[in-house]
Amino acid sequence: MQKKAGPLFYVFLFVFVFLVMFPFLWILLSSIKPLSELFGEEAFNWFTSHPTLKSYVSVFVNYPFLKYLWNSTVIATITTVYTVFVAAFAAYAIARLDFKGKSVILGIVLSVSMFPQIATISPIYMFVKKFGLTNSYLGLIIPYTTFALPLSIWLLVTFFRKIPFDLEEAAKMDGATPLQTYFKVILPLAVPGIFTTSILVFIAAWNEFLFALTINTAENYKTVPVGIAMFQGQYTIPWGEISAATVIVTIPLVIMVLLFQRRIVSGLTSGSVKE
């Protein structure tokens, strides 16, 4: 179906992109409005004539936003590194080695990735409470394993399967053990897949809300999504600060997506397309 695109197509494309991006655009425009222009008649003006960075300053001065960013970064990074590390071994075995119970294991991995979080929250909450892990990094890293590990295994298995099997045969011929084959032949070839998996796991851990909401309730240990969501007070909602904070967390995401879009797409679709 490879046809050339006509001018009408580009119009459609522009409208589509505009609609998808509109909320971000509006938030960006609102984030530089002075407080008085966020309410009343002026609230619907697209462009402010008095742009200001006050909201951005306020986010860092009046809220521990930097701390939220740091917490999220630490938690998401550690979760990603450790789950991808553990998953890489399991995925290699499932994708490349011959043993019984393979499809059962993959079935378990897939079903666990479909578990609703709410079904595990009460025992996990009791567990972290019992061991004094509420309001700590470990208190979120452990629960995050529930979704990060199945996701890593699932993605890595599909990546490992794409590596040609002849390579292993050749290594075997040369007398390499399976473990040597793994480290010397497969792993170097799997680096792009591991990288893609890491990006997706990182995003999933960065965005997680329910565990973060219930387990890390102290200001000093909140993550970004919970922190921003809790900006809203009982009676007032500081829209200026919320807009600024949203822009701040969106920009790195936009950069990441622009840089790695090919990888992300290949990761997202790898489990769903038969090739």
Partner: peptide, 29 residues
């Protein structure tokens, strides 16, 4: 969009942004 066109990468990136942003943040937005 299943065809060759100019600016494909940009469109793909645009598509990914709503997906990548934390749901809690987009809900607030």
């Amino acid at each position: 969009i299943n065809k060759a066109f100019f600016g494909r990468g940009l469109v793909r990136a645009t598509i990914l942004i709503p997906w990548a942003i934390p749901t809690a943040v987009s809900a607030l937005m």
